[in-house]
Design a protein around this nucleic acid. Structure first.
Lengths: 112, 112
DNA sequence: CAAATTCATAACAATTCTGTTATGGATTCG
DNA sequence: CGAATCCATAACAGAATTGTTATGAATTTG
């Protein structure tokens, strides 16, 4: 997952309405009218949020007749999760080493 | 981890310079001059990025004399990682069930 | 103590984001 | 077929973001 994709995915996830949309979509696909009903903002605003999620690869849209169904898409989220996980692990290791060093120093002092 | 914290953490992570700062800090604490040297933008711009990371709980600042040392902080990243993980798992389950249903239907057809 | 270093903040400009209302194309309903 | 429904896009306003330069307080250095 390249840097620009991380930009758009994390940016997409940084808005509470968009996370709310994703949460709703976890229950299954919904059309735009259904999604709009769940929030307190206008339909065009929802349409735009959906578009941003789409561009980030977090949802997929499918037009059937006059309705547009929106469904969650996991790949982009998995990529971002992997990135975060990687860094959390890396930092943790670093801190573990730090703790190790600190506790060794403590032992050294205790030994005196 | 509450919604507003997720806002600030994901938003902080959505900028490539800030992710770059975090990557550098994984190697250990650095002062502002050192961090500024690693990027092609001004010191005040770096200072502001650091502040945003700080407010998101992704780094900690420690002033020693005239220098400010910056170090990565894992808790906020862990929280965001947990959120992402939760949803990825949830969606995956959903899709697994879908796959299950779809393949059962396929079997039904095969049985005919 | 004067000069240099470190870094935060203010002031500003350019750009992007997020909402609104207005509108209209496409599709479905009666 | 005319009316209603679904939803995307345009145009706009206000707020937020990200960079810049200018500046100065605090600290260290020579």
């Amino acid at each position: 997952m390249d840097s620009q994709t991380l930009d758009t995915v994390f940016s997409a996830l940084s808005d509470p309405t968009r996370r709310g949309l994703l949460a709703r979509l976890a229950e299954g696909e919904q059309n735009v009218v259904q999604l709009t009903a769940a929030f307190d903002i206008s339909q065009p605003a929802i349409s735009r949020h959906i578009r941003i999620l789409d561009e980030a690869g977090l949802v997929r849209r499918e037009k059937r007749g006059r309705e547009t169904f929106v469904m969650a898409q996991t790949d982009a989220a998995r990529g971002a999760a992997a990135w975060l996980d990687h860094y959390v692990r890396f930092w943790s290791q670093h801190f573990d080493r730090m703790d190790d060093i600190l506790s060794r120093q403590q032992e050294d002092r205790d030994d005196r």
